[in-house]
């Protein structure tokens, strides 16, 4: 397999941080979606997704991130991203993701702004 990926979750009292590693395509995206939905269904609606170890995100991965944003909006939750490259940030802004989710340089600021 060309794409080795992984998802790590760190849960705190009122939020959770999801850290992805690898190419964010349909395969990693589906796992990410599953983990996020588990957190949301369990009542954790303040999420940070750290993409620092995710060097490439394709449009299918982005569509899955949009589904997570929509799921959180239904529960009046918040999603912040951190660790994006400048190209990723530019793509997120172009695709209107930045209108509905926060973009921060690091985990600390992403958590502080939930």
């Amino acid at each position: 397999m060309l794409n080795k990926f992984d998802i790590q979750i760190r849960e705190a009292e009122e939020h959770a941080i999801i850290e992805t590693t690898g190419y964010l395509n349909d395969a990693l995206g589906e796992q990410l979606s599953e983990k996020a939905q588990e957190l949301i269904q369990g009542g954790c609606v303040q999420l940070v997704i750290n993409l620092e170890k995710t060097t490439l995100i394709n449009s299918i991965g982005i569509s899955i991130l949009i589904e997570i944003i929509e799921a959180l909006e239904e529960r009046e939750g918040t999603l912040n991203f951190c660790g994006l490259s400048s190209t990723q940030e530019r793509t997120f802004r172009m695709m209107a993701i930045a209108k509905y989710a926060g973009i921060f340089p690091d985990e600390e600021s992403a958590v502080a702004n939930l």
Partner: peptide, 15 residues
């Protein structure tokens, strides 16, 4: 979706 500007598909060419 919830927001019309958050189109889920068909964005590859735009990118």
């Amino acid at each position: 979706g919830v927001h019309p500007d958050l189109r889920k598909r068909g964005r590859g060419l735009q990118i």
